[in-house]
């Protein structure tokens, strides 16, 4: 089997049969075993064992991983699925950046942008208070603000759209 893995900004090709695996050509023995009754899987690569948490995160093939205390978001598909996804992604790219949503329920403390503003990647857009801490929510990519839905002083639920964004 051949899987294409997108992880940590890289695309790696992982090929495997029942006992061995190769990553971008380097071959080694590898097995993955579940521990019954837990979400933990044990990955044996060569002579070392790694404790792995791999949980479905979003769409099929997307995972949240914890490997030796490092967290990753990764996407793994076989060749055919990967090719189809790449085509779909290319056509979706023109749809622009996704809106800023509240990652947890909380209180909107400050809104720092207005419709029409151009924002840089990493720029703070809205401050939401939860657990008595103020959390600045930032733009993931450079974008233009098309609408501001958040209102200072109001409570928001997890997933509520705070700021609508469009590609520059």
């Amino acid at each position: 089997m051949k899987y294409i893995v997108d992880i940590a900004g890289q695309r790696l090709v992982v090929e495997f049969d029942g006992t061995h695996v190769s990553v971008d050509g380097d071959k080694m023995s590898a097995t993955l075993e579940s521990i019954d009754g837990t979400p933990v899987r044990l990955l044996r690569v060569g002579d070392t064992v790694h404790r792995v948490l791999a949980k479905r995160d979003g769409a099929r093939g997307q995972y949240a991983l914890d490997v030796d205390g490092w967290q990753f978001r990764a996407e793994a598909h076989d060749e055919r699925t990967r090719a189809i996804r790449d085509l779909a992604d290319a056509s979706r790219a023109s749809a622009g950046p996704s809106p800023l949503v509240a990652p947890m329920p909380g209180l909107v403390v400050r809104v720092m942008v207005a419709a029409g503003d151009e924002v840089a990647a990493g720029q703070g857009l809205v401050v939401v208070e939860a657990m008595k801490m103020e959390n600045e929510l930032r733009a993931a990519v450079a974008a233009r603000v098309t609408a501001v839905r958040a209102v200072a002083g109001t409570a928001v639920d997890k997933g509520a759209v705070l700021v609508e964004l469009a590609a520059l």
């Binding site: 089997m1 899987y3 893995v5 992880i7 940590a8 890289q10 790696l12 992982v14 495997f16 695996v21 990553v23 590898a30 097995t31 993955l32 579940s34 899987r41 990955l43 690569v45 790694h50 792995v52 791999a54 479905r56 093939g61 995972y63 991983l65 490997v67 030796d68 490092w70 990753f72 990764a74 793994a76 598909h77 076989d78």
Partner: peptide, 16 residues
């Protein structure tokens, strides 16, 4: 670690 994680996710995706 990234390579180990890539192996893990490929095998996990296949098992799932």
């Amino acid at each position: 670690t990234i390579r180990i994680a890539a192996i893990a996710v490929a095998l996990a995706a296949h098992q799932d």
